[in-house]
Computed example of a mutant assay.
Amino acid sequence: MNRTRQAIQRIGFCALVVAALALPAHADALPAGFVRLADVDPSIRQDIRYAGSDNFLHRKANGYDAPVCILTEQAARALGRVQKAIAAKGLALVVFDCYRPARAVADMGEWTREGGPPDPQWYPWIKRGDLIAKGYVGQLSSHSRGSTVDVAIARTDRTSAPKLACGAVDAGTLDFGTGFDCFDPMSETVHHPLSNEAAANREMLVDAMRAGGFKNYAREWWHFTLEHEPFAKQRFDFPVAAE
């Protein structure tokens, strides 16, 4: 009887080991094909605005449980190549948003329907309720496919950024004419007029990202999508979480 009981215990123990090995390494393991950018290129700066209150919502967006950039592996590696190309100039990429859960997109849409006056920092000439109709907030977002990134270029010495009236500015970013998420025609990539410096910086960013395989969204100088994205017809809703 004792031998039988010991055999059963050994079988049970082996089963537990196999089951443990089959579990993901982390409780919040990412879907297949996704990575955290820091695991691919930790030198890219992350300033994930929707994980805090410094954004047009003035609060955390639903689904952002941590200020981390998650992308498809292809997009993360392509972004790493862009980073390597500009690093020799004393420059670095800074990302403001990467993968965006579908629940966050819905949250933003619901927020616009609450209505309200223009916001001097984020949408100075448009009422909140008109942001979807004007195309500044989408009811669907390419970010939810995992290969879209909102990005700027910064100096590696992190010198002070210019004081801009509209949008978010990360310390050390170059002058792009507006900050990230400025909902205004000035954010269009080839908007005129712009200062010579801002126009040159936008052109440099577009050229660097294009060389890395990304295409720009013409209405937002900061918005880029990997041309050959792996999930072009699929949207995801897992939360943005740290390891």
Results as ranks from 00 to 15, higher is better:
V169L: 09
F56M: 02
R235L: 03
L71H: 05
P193V: 03
D54N: 14
C166W: 02
T173P: 07
T156N: 13
A208Y: 06
S53Y: 06
T148G: 01
A241P: 06
K134R: 15
G167N: 06
G212F: 05
P42I: 02
D28W: 07
E73A: 15
S195C: 04
K134E: 10
H58C: 10
F56L: 04
F56A: 09
L57P: 02
G52D: 12
L23H: 12
A152W: 02
T72K: 03
H26R: 13
D39G: 13
D39M: 02
A61I: 03
A152H: 04
H191R: 14
C69S: 11
V95G: 03
F56C: 05
G177W: 00
E110F: 14
A32S: 10
C166R: 03
F56G: 05
D65V: 00
A211R: 13
F183T: 03
D184H: 08
T173S: 07
G116H: 05
H192W: 12
L23I: 11
A15L: 15
G90N: 08
G12L: 14
M204F: 08
G213S: 07
A208T: 05
E110D: 10
A133M: 08
T189P: 02
A161R: 06
A198E: 02
F180Q: 09
R36G: 01
E197L: 08
Q139M: 12
A198H: 01
Q83T: 05
R5M: 10
R113L: 11
Y136D: 02
K163S: 15
M1P: 13
A66C: 06
H192F: 13
E220G: 00
A161Q: 07
A102K: 13
H26I: 01
K233M: 12
K84Q: 12
Y64D: 04
L91S: 05
